[in-house]
Amino acid sequence: MKRYILSLFVLSTILTLNACKKSEEPLTPSGADETYTYKVPQGNNAFDETIVDYYKKYGTYMLYKFTEKDAYWTPTGWKKPLEVKGSWTAGAEVEASDPVYIAAQLNLIKTKWFNFYSDKFLKKFLPVKILLCKRVDSVGNAFIFTPVFSSVKSTKKMPAFYNYDNIQINYGDATVNSMTAADLRLFIYKTNLIFMQSIFARGLIAPTNEFANSADYNTAMTTTTQAYGRGIIVNPSGPAVQADWNAYITAMVTYSTVQLNASVAITDSSAAGILNPIKDTAGQIKRRYNMVRNYFINEYGVDLQLIGNATRGL
């Protein structure tokens, strides 16, 4: 029995690693009844050359022809939103891009996503697949209270969404040519946030020793003021170093320096004002903020704060 259980564990581990791994060979997703192999180019359009170049540089497949399995399969089950007992499960519904607009979509991805990072960063952290979509709709529930209480499907257009080994990018349709300044800021905000969240979910960015040793995570805290005084910006009831590290990264890519330095009440739970003395009562948040920011500048040539700054003005 022990041998059988161990074999299942090893098999499961191998399947998961194969699904996550970037390979120089065509990738075959694991854990399904059918075999799908990703290859680029998927056509002979001029933009296919750009897609092939990205694969050669970063080992990432940018797909505009993909199956539901490519979008929704994970080792723990399918993530396509479903109606269950009158309510919809969370997730996003996607639809592949219209080839007419893929060249413009690729330019959007380059200028408002890839250009914030170095090749070294993208090669290490991009997922196996980027799905080019003309529709990425988050799914949830809206509620009707009269005459009888019930829930109905609710959808919202999203610039991007991530799911296990892929990031799904919107605007592969005519709307890519009519994006407003607000649309572009939202695209920068959401796509780069989704990118970071996918990196966190894959466990690819561990805190540095300098960061981990720069705050007291062992002594219990009961208030936000106590946490901020130690330079900890996550929930004081039970912070972990990784969660705090992730929170600093998230703050940089979603808030501008103006917002981070704004005068905001300490009772505000967002990252706004974390570098202002009102929240940063002992100067420890700014000290640790600089550790994280400088690490990515020195290690990858990437200033994450430039992303947050771009979400507030173009």
Rank of each mutant, 00 (worst) to 15 (best):
L126T: 14
T191Q: 10
V139A: 05
L193N: 04
S23K: 09
W73Q: 09
S118Q: 06
I102F: 11
K21W: 14
I233P: 06
D303R: 06
N18V: 05
M196L: 15
I307T: 05
T28Y: 06
V136D: 06
G77D: 02
S154L: 05
T222A: 11
N276Y: 02
A247E: 15
F200P: 03
K279I: 07
Y38A: 13
L304W: 05
Q305T: 13
T50A: 12
I130W: 09
L27A: 11
V176W: 02
G43S: 15
A243H: 02
T219L: 02
Y248W: 05
G301K: 07
P81D: 02
A282D: 14
S154K: 12
S150R: 14
K279F: 03
V100Q: 15
D70L: 10
F66R: 05
K22Q: 10
T180D: 09
N218M: 11
T225D: 10
K112R: 15
A271L: 04
I5N: 13
P75H: 05
Y117G: 03
L131F: 08
L6V: 15
K80T: 03
F125T: 10
P26R: 02
A271H: 15
K57N: 14
F143L: 04
A310K: 13
L186S: 10
G31C: 06
Y72N: 14
S87W: 00
T89M: 07
Q242R: 06
R202H: 03
V176E: 02
R293P: 11
Y164W: 13
A240W: 01
I14F: 11
D303F: 09
M179Y: 07
F296G: 12
V10S: 04
L108D: 03
I297S: 06
K85Q: 13
A142K: 13
K39Y: 03
W88E: 01
S118A: 09
G273M: 10
A19N: 15
Y117I: 02
Y36G: 01
I266R: 07
C133L: 08
E93M: 11
G77R: 01
I205A: 08
T224E: 05
M62A: 09
S198R: 03
N213D: 14
Y295A: 04
D183Y: 06
I205P: 00
T254G: 11
N166G: 11
T60M: 02
A247T: 10
P81M: 07
N298K: 13
V258P: 00
Y255M: 04
G313Q: 08
T175M: 08
A247Q: 15
T254Y: 01
S97L: 02
D268N: 15
D183F: 03
V234I: 15
T28M: 11
K110G: 04
N141H: 10
K123S: 14
V128G: 03
